[in-house]
């Protein structure tokens, strides 16, 4: 009996090992990602963004800095092609462009709100807030994860088809937004050394 058991035992050990590996991969769950993101109190990063827009012959590119302070302040400082700052503080989005200032309460612009909340919610590791608007799904492991967000609301879905974020452990590396009409944007993020 013992002999008969041994081979399966090896298989079992192998399976267990595999299962353990699998479990570890599955362990890097949405919850785990959210927990490690929630640890971050403040973050500074550079970004480059490309927007692929159907009516334009080539994508528009922009670059600049991202600043995040937990739990609900996100600042996007675009330096190129022209300086612009966008500050999201609580529920007010303020855009400053040269002498022009625009403040947009997020409630009045749901499509903008959904998009921006996805980034902020992810950075804050706020699963609840994300799940209010999106269906979340996770692929990959801690070293290379991809989080996919699909809007729940029909109206939102008519604007944004899906948002894909990739990253390494607690660092978000890219955000890709695909819009319902096929236009999409890809933002690459590089964490900056802590000051």
């Amino acid at each position: 009996m013992t002999h008969r058991i041994r081979v399966p035992h090896a298989v079992a050990v192998l399976l267990l090992a595999l299962a353990a590996a699998g479990a570890r991969a599955a362990d890097w769950s949405v919850d785990q990602l959210m927990q490690s993101l929630a640890q971050i109190r403040a973050e500074r990063a550079t970004f480059t963004e490309k927007k692929f827009i159907a009516i334009l012959d080539r994508p528009v590119e922009s670059s600049g800095e991202l600043l995040y302070r937990a739990p609900d302040r996100l600042e996007k400082r675009t330096l190129k092609p022209r300086p612009e700052s966008m500050v999201l503080d609580q529920n007010l989005l303020q855009i400053e462009r040269g002498r022009q200032k625009l403040s947009l309460p997020l409630q009045e612009h749901p499509e903008l709100a959904a998009f921006i909340d996805s980034i902020r919610g992810t950075l804050a590791g706020d699963r609840k807030s994300l799940e209010r608007n999106y269906r979340l799904s996770m692929e990959g492991g801690a070293q290379q994860w991809t989080l996919q967000l699909v809007p729940l609301d029909e109206k939102m879905l008519a604007v944004v088809k899906q948002i894909r974020m990739t990253g390494v452990r607690d660092a978000v590396r890219s955000i890709e937004v695909t819009q319902a009409d096929g236009d999409r944007s890809l933002m690459l993020i590089e964490r900056m050394a802590k000051p």
Partner: peptide, 20 residues
């Protein structure tokens, strides 16, 4: 040119459909 630049900004999400 400025309108195209604006498309690069978050506000571009609002103005994109107006461009034509």
């Amino acid at each position: 040119g400025e309108s195209i630049d604006l498309l690069a900004s978050p506000a571009g999400l609002l103005t994109r459909s107006l461009l034509p």
